[in-house]
């Protein structure tokens, strides 16, 4: 591929929305964080107390009943650990496939097989693939017929498609 190319800027759209809308989004989101902070306040204070000097000691906060918490969570934690072990096994198992750089390639689909599915002969399919602009009918069953109208033109820009008449 080409080297020394300039980087491409992501085509992100940031439309100018009304100030009230931006303010609403910010306030609501701030409120949501405060709500979560409120419900997690005991845990957050516990962590703060544990990490401040003297570090790794609880000074004012009371330690929760870890046994009770573990009793409640044990089943879910063990299930999660089991699933992590499961996906780790598959990651290990698939690493050769995922890290491969080349592999024998399957043969391409023959045009004849492709054309049959859509009710087209080889010649019709070949003609279709020459067209630059074309109009086609495709019925709900997937059968295709080509219309020779004013829009259709082939890769050379002529007015009509060369090749067999379709449909």
């Amino acid at each position: 591929m080409k080297t020394g190319r300039p980087p491409v800027e992501p085509p992100i759209i940031r439309a100018r929305v009304p100030a009230w809308m931006r303010g609403r989004d910010v306030l609501l989101t701030l409120g949501a964080w405060l709500l979560i902070g409120y419900f997690l306040r005991e845990g957050l204070y516990l962590a703060y107390d544990y990490l401040r000097a003297p570090i790794f000691e609880l000074t004012t906060a009371r330690a929760p009943d870890w046994g009770e918490i573990w009793g409640r969570l044990r089943g879910f934690v063990l299930l999660a650990v089991g699933l992590v072990a499961w996906i780790t096994f598959w990651a290990f198992d698939s690493r050769a496939r995922l890290q491969a750089t080349h592999s024998p390639q399957p043969a391409p689909l023959p045009d004849a097989s492709h054309g049959v599915h859509f009710g087209l002969t080889d010649a019709e399919l070949a003609a279709w693939r020459l067209a630059k602009v074309q109009t086609v009918d495709i019925d709900p069953a997937g059968q295709v017929t080509m219309r020779m109208d004013g829009r259709s033109r082939d890769v050379g820009g002529r007015a009509e498609i060369s090749g067999p008449s379709l449909g």
Partner: peptide, 26 residues
């Protein structure tokens, strides 16, 4: 660019089928 016009609206699935049939490459 090549263009395939479907004469009637058939939905994305059939549009993709028509495009795939017109496609020259695997």
């Amino acid at each position: 660019l090549r263009v395939v016009h479907l004469a009637t609206n058939r939905g994305k699935a059939l549009a993709l089928n028509a495009g795939a049939a017109a496609a020259r490459h695997e």
